[in-house]
Each structure stands twice: as structure tokens, then as C-alpha cells.
């Protein structure tokens, strides 16, 4: 039957037979029998490869009142997957483990920064009032939960899931997601409060240049002058403010998905949130270290709010002078004996 048709076609259309011979298929050439019009009715229609080349995604129209459904194809999903599964664990792992290693190395080579004993030891000076401590800890406890639950999105399935099993891990992640989404709000409040209350003490000035040149009290052995916050603390402040605002902005975009941006925007938002997040965590690890283990006497500032005057004079001499000038009678300085002027 086929042979007969082919023979017939060959008789009718010499050229058609030539094409047939080239392809070697036992099917008649389309132009002759199967498609009598000899035309492609959808010749003018769009083609996938051409659209993907020109627009890099396929956007159409759909009868569902959901704008997202009109996106037919976005190969960028594969790229975002490559970021999330290929790059992000490495960026996060190197940033956080690298920071931990650096801190361990610092601790074991240089040890704690000790508190000097001077005649002012034992005298206390108020460094952070109750409200300042409250807003710090509000932000801090939220940050710790946000950091752990955030890292769970990246490393949970790799580290925790094999240990506790998929069901327990899914339940934990579900609660972690609730915590991440809702504790973000008190975090943002604490962030704004810290920005308002502390920004005036964190404007960089000439003293900071000298402080950085001398390597601070951390890398060098000297104790350069500083006002209320030294250059290192100002850096942490601006890291927290800028990083925190970026995290808040991208986080809100992800809490209300597709409210302000399309799928590629959401992918970019997630990437920014994740990368800033792991770098933020690494920076805060250093802040936690220097505020607790790294420096003797530093924790009191956020613990009780009152620091040893000897510590304050060592690390924030210009601030102590300011405070003493402000309150000549000395209500800020609690202590039995008068402090001789130096």
C-alpha cells in the first residue's frame, strides 16, 4: 500500500519523490497527500524556541483570575535552583564556618581582652539605660531565632533531617517557619528603635579614622580614644541597620509573594535575602564573641547596663569625659569615692 502510494506520488511529483528518497521514510511527503492544502495553518504562530530566545520566558493569557498562572514557562527556575542548591550552601557554609574558625583562632592565640585594674575599678558607670537594653535584647532574641530558622531552610535537610527523621524535621520546620515569619515583626521594631536611639552616636568622625589606623583595641595592643561607640561598634551598628533594613524589605516582599514583583523578582528577592542573611549571621557571630567571651567587662554594658569605670575609661575615654562633664555632680557615676581627674 505504502509502496503504491509512493510510486503514485513519485509519478505526480518528481521533486517530492526526491525529497522522500533523501529522508528514507516510508511516509508520503506531506505536501502531496496528507495535507492537501499544502499549507501550514499555524505557520504564523509563535514558536517556543524563538520566544524563549527573544523574551527568555513565555507569558500569555489565561482565563484564571491569577496573574501567575499566565506565565507558561520560565526556565530561570532552573537557574534559581542552581543558586539555592549549588551556591547558597557554599556561601553560607564558608561565611559562617569561616567566621567561627577566625574567632576560635583569635581566642586561642590572643585570648580574652582583659580588664585592667586601676584605682577606678569597682566604680560603676551607666552605659545603657533600661530601654536601650530592652530594644537591644528584643532585636537580639528575635535575630537568634530568625537566624536559626533561616539556616534551617538551607542546612536543615542536610544536617538535621538525617538525624531526627523526615516527620520530626517537617514538624520542626513548620514551627520554624511560623517563628521566622512572625518574629520578623518584633525584629523590625527593635531594628527601627535602635536606629532612632543610637544613630546620633554612630555618625563616623575623625576619631574613628585614628581608631581604625591603630587597629582598634582588638587587633592592636593600644587602646585608641573613642566616644560612646568606637569605629568597630559603629561598623556593627551600620551592618545591623543596613543589613537589617535589606532583610526587612526582602522579607516583607516574600511574606506577600507576588504582591510587588513577578517570578523573577521573587527569585532575586529570595537570593538577596539568603545571601545578606548568611553574611549578617557571620557578622553578628563576631559581635556576640566580642561582647561576651572576647572582652572582659563588655557584657555588663548590655547585662546590667553598668560598666566598670576602669573599663569605660580604657575603651571609651572620650565618652566618659562627656558623661562626667554632663553630670558634674556625678549621678551617672555610682561609687563611694570621688574620681580624681586625670
Amino acid at each position: 500500500m505504502h509502496l503504491l502510494r509512493i510510486a503514485l506520488a513519485a509519478l505526480m511529483l518528481g521533486g517530492g519523490a526526491a525529497v522522500l528518497a533523501q529522508t528514507g521514510r516510508d511516509v508520503p511527503p506531506a505536501a502531496s497527500t496528507a495535507n492537501p492544502s499544502g499549507q501550514n495553518p499555524t505557520a504564523a504562530s509563535v514558536r517556543e524556541d524563538q520566544l524563549l530566545r527573544e523574551l527568555n520566558k513565555l507569558q500569555g493569557r489565561v482565563s484564571i483570575p491569577d496573574g501567575k498562572a499566565a506565565l507558561l514557562e520560565q526556565p530561570q527556575g532552573r537557574e534559581w535552583r542552581q543558586f539555592r542548591e549549588g551556591w547558597l550552601p557554599w556561601i553560607g557554609g564558608i561565611a559562617i564556618l569561616g567566621m567561627l574558625l577566625a574567632l576560635f583562632g583569635f581566642y586561642f592565640t590572643k585570648g580574652r581582652i582583659r580588664l585592667d585594674q586601676t584605682e577606678e575599678s569597682g566604680v560603676k558607670i551607666l552605659r545603657f539605660n533600661a530601654f536601650e537594653r530592652f530594644m537591644h535584647w528584643l532585636t537580639a532574641v528575635c535575630f537568634i531565632v530568625l537566624a536559626l530558622t533561616g539556616l534551617n531552610y538551607i542546612f536543615g535537610k542536610r544536617l538535621l533531617m538525617p538525624i531526627i527523621g523526615p516527620d520530626a524535621f517537617a514538624a520542626l520546620s513548620q514551627w520554624g517557619k511560623y517563628a521566622h515569619n512572625y518574629l520578623a515583626w518584633p525584629f523590625m521594631l527593635g531594628l527601627l528603635l535602635m536606629l532612632i536611639v543610637w544613630v546620633k552616636d554612630n555618625i563616623p568622625n575623625r576619631v574613628d579614622v585614628a581608631w581604625i589606623r591603630k587597629g582598634g583595641g582588638f587587633l592592636g595592643d593600644a587602646h585608641p580614644s573613642a566616644y560612646r561607640f568606637n569605629a568597630g561598634q559603629k561598623m556593627i551598628f551600620w551592618i545591623v541597620v543596613i543589613g537589617g533594613l535589606l532583610m526587612s524589605a526582602t522579607g516583607i516582599l516574600m511574606l506577600f509573594p507576588f504582591s510587588a514583583t513577578d517570578i523573577n523578582g521573587m527569585q532575586l528577592t529570595q537570593a538577596v535575602h539568603a545571601v545578606i542573611g548568611v553574611l549578617f549571621i557571620a557578622a553578628i557571630l563576631a559581635h556576640i564573641y566580642i561582647g561576651s567571651l572576647g572582652m572582659e567587662g563588655a557584657y555588663d554594658a548590655m547585662g546590667s547596663g553598668e560598666v566598670d569605670l576602669a573599663w569605660a575609661r580604657r575603651h571609651h575615654d572620650l565618652w566618659v569625659e562627656e558623661q562626667r562633664a554632663k553630670t558634674a555632680s556625678g549621678p551617672q557615676v555610682h561609687g563611694a569615692r570621688p574620681v580624681p581627674a586625670e
Binding site: F134, W137, V141
Partner: peptide, 13 residues
């Protein structure tokens, strides 16, 4: 202050 902050964080959340 820390306990107060935790309580406040939970309430705000």
C-alpha cells in the same frame, strides 16, 4: 531585661 525582651517578642509576634 532579656526576659522582658523575650516576653515582648513573643507578644509582638
Amino acid at each position: 531585661t532579656i526576659i522582658l525582651a523575650i516576653v515582648a517578642a513573643v507578644l509582638l509576634a
